[in-house]
Amino acid sequence: MELAGRAVLVTGGSRGLGAETARVLAGRGARVVVAARPSADLTAVVESIRRGGGTAHAVAADLGRKEDIVPLAGTAAALVGPLDAVVHNASTLGPLPLRALADTACEDLAAVLEVNLLGPFRLTKELLGPMVLRQGGLVVAVTSDAGTVPYEGWGAYGVSKAALDHLMRIWAQELGASGVRVLSVDPGEMDTAMHAQAMPEAPRSALAHPRDVALRLVALMEAADTVPSGARVVLDQWQAPVLR
């Protein structure tokens, strides 16, 4: 997807991979809406994009709240027009430190699913109609290897990402002829606040910088028509197509 002039929504955009993805998208000429819970970080991301000459708007929303989804989609469409793409990046680990399933409260599992699974489901439903009408659009869900490997202690998060991957696969099947493409993207381990929360002991030197990951993620979005819709892409194994 050519990104210049496109309307793109990035959730969880106040820090880490979401913030860097919003910056890279704006640098490619996209009109970006950055959604996150209200914070100084959210405002700062949008201000830094604008200082650089890009177009960005901040919209405060909690992706785990059903009541926030229609207002988020409506505000985004009012500010930048019908959306061409969405990056479902917002997610939560659940209670910290990470814990065994046996120690996980039902309510905590439900809260993680609200943000990581139902949030992308509701928001995709909100944004899909105009994409189907226009026979084009891109839905990207940021996933994790915790969704395919049963790591101890990652139960709530891992289950949510496994379900998110499958949600995207089924959506891709159902949208097969519509022109709308759907991808799950595993960005790999990054040096983010979320990673530090999950594994405070892990050395940071071996971790990728979220900026570098965002550059690859946006390259994947630009090359989305070379990847089968419904694919789960492990970003550091993905080869960008050679430009002629």
Binding site: V70, A77, P82, G129, P130, V132
Partner: peptide, 27 residues
């Protein structure tokens, strides 16, 4: 009060005839 294919928030009341046209039906 949203149709299945709503985009920009311009309507003050729902353009309700669109309710009949779900996305699978449009396809």
């Amino acid at each position: 009060v949203q149709t299945p294919f709503h985009a920009r928030p311009w309507a003050m009341e729902m353009p309700s005839a669109g309710r009949a046209l779900t996305l699978p039906r449009l396809e």
